[in-house]
C-alpha cells in the first residue's frame, strides 16, 4: 500500500508495520492530505497490539498541513491507549529535529529516534 505523488512517496510495509516517507510533501490542506492520512490511520488501527513505525528519514520537506496531520495521528494513537508508536528521523534533515521532538509532547510514550 502506498500513496505516490509527483515528488513524494508514502509506502506501508505490512510485515514490519512501517510507513516510509520520502521526497517533498507540500500538499494543500487536509483534503489533499486525506489519502495519506487514511493510509496512516489504517496502519495505526490495524496494529494496535504491535504498534507501528513511521520512518521519516528520507522526507526532505513537510509543510504545516503535513505536520498537522501527523500530530493529529499521534494524539489519536495516545488516546487509543495501548499503541506503541515509533518514529525515526534524520539529523541531516533540518526540519525534523524540533518538529519530531514535539511529537513526544503529544505522546510521552512515543519512541523517537533521530539518527
Amino acid at each position: 500500500m502506498e500513496v505516490i505523488g509527483g515528488d513524494y512517496r508514502v509506502g506501508v510495509d505490512a510485515e514490519t508495520q512501517t510507513a516510509s516517507f520520502s521526497g517533498t510533501l507540500r500538499l494543500n490542506g487536509a483534503d489533499e492530505y486525506a489519502p495519506i492520512q487514511e493510509l496512516l490511520d489504517e496502519l495505526l488501527s490495524n496494529n494496535q497490539d504491535g504498534g507501528c513505525t513511521w520512518d521519516l528519514r528520507e522526507l526532505q520537506f513537510l509543510n504545516s498541513s503535513g505536520i498537522n496531520m501527523l500530530y493529529q495521528l499521534v494524539i489519536k494513537a495516545r488516546r487509543m491507549g495501548n499503541v506503541k508508536m515509533r518514529v525515526i528521523g534524520s539529523k541531516e534533515v533540518a526540519w525534523q529535529g524540533k518538529s519530531l521532538g514535539n511529537m513526544t509532547r503529544f505522546m510521552p510514550g512515543l519512541e523517537l529516534s533521530v539518527e
Binding site: 513537510l62 509543510n63 504545516s64 505536520i67 498537522n68 494524539i75 518538529s99 514535539n102 509532547r105 503529544f106
Partner: peptide
C-alpha cells in the same frame, strides 16, 4: 492538545 498543536505547528512553520 489544541494549544500544544497550535504552538507545535507554529514552531514547525517558523523553522521552515
Amino acid at each position: 492538545d489544541l494549544a500544544l498543536m497550535y504552538t507545535s505547528v507554529i514552531e514547525h512553520s517558523t523553522g521552515l
